Amino acid sequence: MIISIVLFLLGILKMIIIVQAIISWLVAFNVINTYNDFVRQFLYALDRLTEPLYKPIRKILPDFGALDLSPLVVLILIIILEKILVGIHTGAPLI
């Protein structure tokens, strides 16, 4: 039961990270107008949700300039955690 809830929340977190990555690309290519109040508040909310996850990883990763790999690292860690939890939940081997 608890593992199912954690897996559900991890799935939501993955979707938030993917949406934030896509929106950040759209902002970088000037497809989305950041002068719109709704868009600005939406971006701010996404940043507030994901920044606590990215911050420790950004301290470890080397600086790649404009390329931020911390969302990719967080997604990989979430997928690994999901695999471990599914293995625990089903009793299946982890490999």
Score class of each variant (00 low, 15 high):
M1D: 14
I2E: 14
V6T: 01
V6D: 06
L9G: 02
L10A: 11
L10N: 09
G11Y: 07
G11P: 04
I12Q: 10
M15D: 15
I17E: 03
I18K: 05
I18C: 08
V19K: 00
A21G: 10
I23D: 05
W25S: 08
W25T: 10
V27H: 01
V27S: 06
F29Y: 12
F29T: 14
V31N: 02
I32G: 00
T34S: 07
T34K: 09
Y35C: 08
Y35P: 09
N36K: 00
N36A: 10
V39W: 05
V39D: 07
V39M: 12
R40A: 10
R40C: 08
R40D: 09
R40P: 11
Q41D: 14
F42C: 08
A45R: 11
L49A: 10
L49D: 04
T50I: 08
E51I: 12
E51H: 12
P52R: 02
L53T: 00
L53M: 02
K55F: 12
P56V: 02
P56K: 01
R58V: 04
R58L: 06
K59V: 09
K59D: 14
I60Y: 04
I60A: 08
L61Y: 05
P62R: 06
F64N: 08
A66F: 15
L67R: 05
L69K: 01
L69I: 12
L69G: 02
S70A: 13
L72S: 12
V73Q: 03
I76L: 15
L77K: 07
L77N: 12
I78F: 06
I79V: 15
I79W: 14
K83C: 13
K83E: 15
K83A: 14
I84P: 07
I84T: 11
V86L: 11
I88T: 08
H89I: 09
G91P: 09
A92I: 09
A92Y: 02
P93M: 06
L94F: 14
L94G: 12
L94C: 07
L94S: 14
I95M: 15
I95G: 15
